[in-house]
Design a protein around this nucleic acid. Structure first.
Lengths: 287, 287
DNA sequence: CGCGCCCGATACCTCGTGGGTATCGCCCCA
DNA sequence: TGGGGCGATACCCACGAGGTATCGGGCGCG
């Protein structure tokens, strides 16, 4: 009946590595260590939790249901620990007037962002705002692990859970396609129609890990590249209305009847005490 | 230029202990260890973060601004790690039909809870619901560290940040006072009036750490005790309207004109995958 | 059908470091 | 000015994290 050891972040990092690689050897390599200590660490973790986290197969390790839970919760915990570390460092090095880090999806909501930044800069107590443009889906992660203080996110695409948010703007989505295309004269269209045009397969965006989903469409991660390909008649893309301001010649737009409305929100981590974040949010909600 | 060590939960626990005690010796005692290793651990943490976390005074240690940040963020991180541990254990021991733990403030929203539990139990895929009544303010903590899966909380009193929520009910607040009291015939009243009746000082509730605020009113932590004292003409209390169903003889009620409206919400941790939680929330939103 | 490969697990050793005791240095207050 | 209370330092020990070598087993391939 000895004292129950507490979970250490090192164990969580080991566990997530093994879970992600589904292979002790590869995980060990990724962690820069040998395989046996990693095996032992995982075994000890399972013993301590009283839970089988993996089923050992001849091909490697696969997660049990409990393992899935620990992977999800553990990732959140690790992000929170990282955030604690980063925010402390930043609080220490920038005494007082620390710049606020705002992250947004590259190429989206540009006019809204411009308005927000201009309006905030005009505030009497405004602090410096560092804008970090990141690839889609990464903004929420940056907010979770402390790399950013505040983010511009889009519902229902981004995962807002766990953040405090204010809605800024809700809009419909449209299909952007080449100007000359037969369907470009349609008054409206459904999402299924829009994404199943035979000669205009929708582009594929990278997952968070950098891999691409399967499909016929082009692999892309940049909005301007996509628009160029649309102009060339190779693909068509569904975008929020406000992205129309970016459009130039050679592109046509068809409203979508049944696409989910997109809400642009400003999000920040719970319990934020940064006056800069508070000011930005206050300004944003008045736009 | 060696590799940057990562923050371990043990260090966070040490840090929070010292921060809370403002005294290395007492913190060491609380942690069941000697003082010197704790001093060293704190010093190493400060070196690694490149941040002064404490200012050493002859009387003990007090937090710097960076230290305040780490205390707040670190507590959240520790709660998240604990939650990961607990939820994994629970997922392992109860394969499949795990009971859902619902926590609520003792004595509040009783009819709403009863309706909710009855309605949910009637669902075809309902799982067992374990109800944990806890003292005010503790429900959010239990949700954060994994002791509960879902909670009934009250805005603006509970800290909802970081949770997903659904609003269930919004209501006004009323003053409950002894039936014979001169003010009991008033048609309405303001909050300042209600809380500054000379012969009926408002009761004092314990803080989360168990201590009581200063003041003339009685120290209480239980609603029925409070109502009894009201009946005896010793105090008066502000409550949501729905608490009136608990009232019996000897009590009078006066509506408050400017009290904040109280919203009862059902809250659950982000990324919850529990079907039981989903079912409860679905049921609750249909009430 | 069995040899061999590719898994993770085990055995055993080493060394870093977390934690212990003893003591110091310092600041306040009596 | 001396004593008490505070955190820091010095020094030591032992536990455990991490290394190398090896085992055991399941599947695939010749």
């Amino acid at each position: 009946m000895d004292v129950v050891e507490n979970l250490e972040t090192r164990e969580l990092r080991y566990f997530t590595a093994v879970a992600e690689e589904a292979h002790v050897g590869r995980a060990a390599e990724r962690l820069g260590m040998a395989q046996p200590p990693l095996s032992r660490a995982v075994a000890r973790l399972e013993r301590r939790l009283g839970a089988d986290l993996f089923v050992r197969t001849p091909r490697g390790m696969t997660l049990t249901a409990a393992g899935e839970v620990l992977l999800r919760e553990g990732r959140a915990a690790l992000a929170q620990v990282e955030a604690a570390e980063r925010r402390t460092r930043r609080a220490a090095e920038a005494r007082g007037r620390a710049p606020v880090v705002l992250t947004a999806k590259a190429g989206a909501s540009s006019e809204l962002m411009a308005k927000l930044l201009a309006a905030y800069a005009a505030e009497p107590d405004a602090v410096e705002v560092e804008v970090v443009l990141s690839s889609p889906g990464h903004q929420a992660l940056m907010l979770r692990d402390g790399r950013a203080d505040v983010a511009i996110l889009h519902r229902p695409f981004d995962d807002l859970s766990g953040f405090d948010t204010d809605e800024l703007l809700t809009e419909n989505q449209v299909l952007v396609l080449p100007a000359g295309h037969p369907l470009s004269t349609r008054a409206s269209m459904s999402v299924v129609e829009a994404t199943s045009i035979p000669d205009l397969p929708p582009p594929r965006w990278p997952h968070l890990d950098g891999t691409y989903p399967d499909g016929p469409g082009p692999e892309l991660s940049d909005l301007t590249q996509v628009l160029q390909l649309v102009r060339l008649g190779r693909t068509a893309i569904v975008l929020p209305e406000s992205a129309q301001v970016n459009l130039r010649d050679g592109l046509a737009v068809v409203p979508l009847t049944d696409a989910p409305r997109v809400t642009t929100v400003i999000a920040w981590p719970p319990h934020s005490t940064s006056p800069g974040v508070a000011g930005l949010v206050r300004t944003a909600s008045r736009l």
